[in-house]
Computed example of a mutant assay.
Amino acid sequence: MIIACPECAGLNRVPNERLKQDPKCGKCKSSLFNGEPVTLNTANFDHHASKAELPLVVDFWANWCGPCQAFSPVFSATAKELEPQFRFGKLDTEAQQTIAARYGIRSIPTLMIIKNGQVIAQQAGAMPPEAFKQWLSQNG
């Protein structure tokens, strides 16, 4: 499986049986899974969304959005729990307007699962932890 590094966005080939054995990036030697959402931007988004084979769960958010702030701990806790089944990433729609426009983000928070460059699920609005995990299990 091709995995993008959360630090340098370098692409790494990792056998499925090694995903839970703390694999390291061949380029920067960072851990490929640190249990934290990746901050997505124009420099690393396509590596995680299109070139990596791990499903990417994106939280499209903004700093001024109350529901986004309330959902952030749920997203982070779920990332810690479910990685490496998914890669979790946060995209600030104010700072990354081009990417938000590419995906037609009209309301925030918007959650999206992207695999091999294709959106496979999308949900507008924050969710409680169990509903979020159920949504991921149904769509991942």
Rank of each mutant, 00 (worst) to 15 (best):
131 A>M: 09
100 A>K: 04
124 A>L: 07
123 Q>G: 03
135 W>E: 01
131 A>K: 14
97 Q>E: 15
128 P>T: 10
139 N>D: 00
103 Y>N: 05
127 M>Y: 02
101 A>C: 01
130 E>Q: 15
139 N>Y: 03
137 S>A: 09
112 M>W: 03
140 G>Q: 06
133 K>G: 02
108 I>E: 05
132 F>Y: 07
139 N>I: 04
106 R>K: 13
140 G>M: 09
113 I>G: 08
101 A>R: 10
132 F>W: 04
110 T>V: 01
140 G>P: 05
96 Q>K: 15
108 I>V: 13
140 G>H: 06
140 G>Y: 01
105 I>D: 05
110 T>Y: 04
104 G>H: 12
106 R>M: 15
135 W>F: 02
118 Q>H: 11
127 M>L: 15
137 S>I: 00
102 R>Y: 07
138 Q>N: 11
112 M>C: 08
112 M>K: 07
98 T>H: 01
104 G>W: 09
117 G>D: 02
127 M>P: 03
110 T>I: 03
110 T>Q: 12
121 A>F: 00
121 A>K: 02
127 M>G: 02
123 Q>T: 09
137 S>M: 07
118 Q>D: 00
115 K>Y: 01
124 A>R: 14
108 I>P: 11
122 Q>W: 08
98 T>K: 00
121 A>R: 01
134 Q>S: 12
130 E>I: 11
96 Q>Y: 04
107 S>W: 07
111 L>N: 11
111 L>T: 11
140 G>S: 10
132 F>I: 06
121 A>N: 03
98 T>G: 09
98 T>S: 14
114 I>V: 15
138 Q>S: 06
98 T>I: 14
125 G>Y: 06
119 V>Q: 10
123 Q>V: 12
98 T>Y: 03
105 I>A: 05
120 I>L: 06
108 I>N: 11
128 P>K: 11
113 I>A: 13
139 N>V: 03
120 I>C: 09
105 I>H: 04
140 G>F: 07
105 I>V: 15
99 I>K: 08
101 A>K: 09
103 Y>S: 04
104 G>S: 12
104 G>V: 10
121 A>T: 04
114 I>Y: 03
112 M>N: 07
136 L>M: 02
130 E>L: 14
107 S>P: 12
119 V>E: 12
117 G>F: 06
105 I>N: 05
119 V>S: 11
130 E>Y: 12
133 K>T: 13
102 R>E: 10
123 Q>S: 07
140 G>T: 13
124 A>P: 03
101 A>N: 14
134 Q>H: 10
128 P>D: 15
121 A>I: 02
129 P>N: 07
118 Q>A: 10
131 A>W: 09
106 R>E: 15
99 I>R: 07
98 T>R: 00
129 P>G: 12
111 L>Q: 06
120 I>W: 00
130 E>T: 14
105 I>S: 08
98 T>V: 14
109 P>T: 10
109 P>S: 11
123 Q>L: 09
132 F>R: 13
134 Q>G: 02
135 W>I: 04
124 A>M: 13
128 P>R: 08
127 M>W: 06
111 L>K: 00
131 A>L: 10
99 I>A: 08
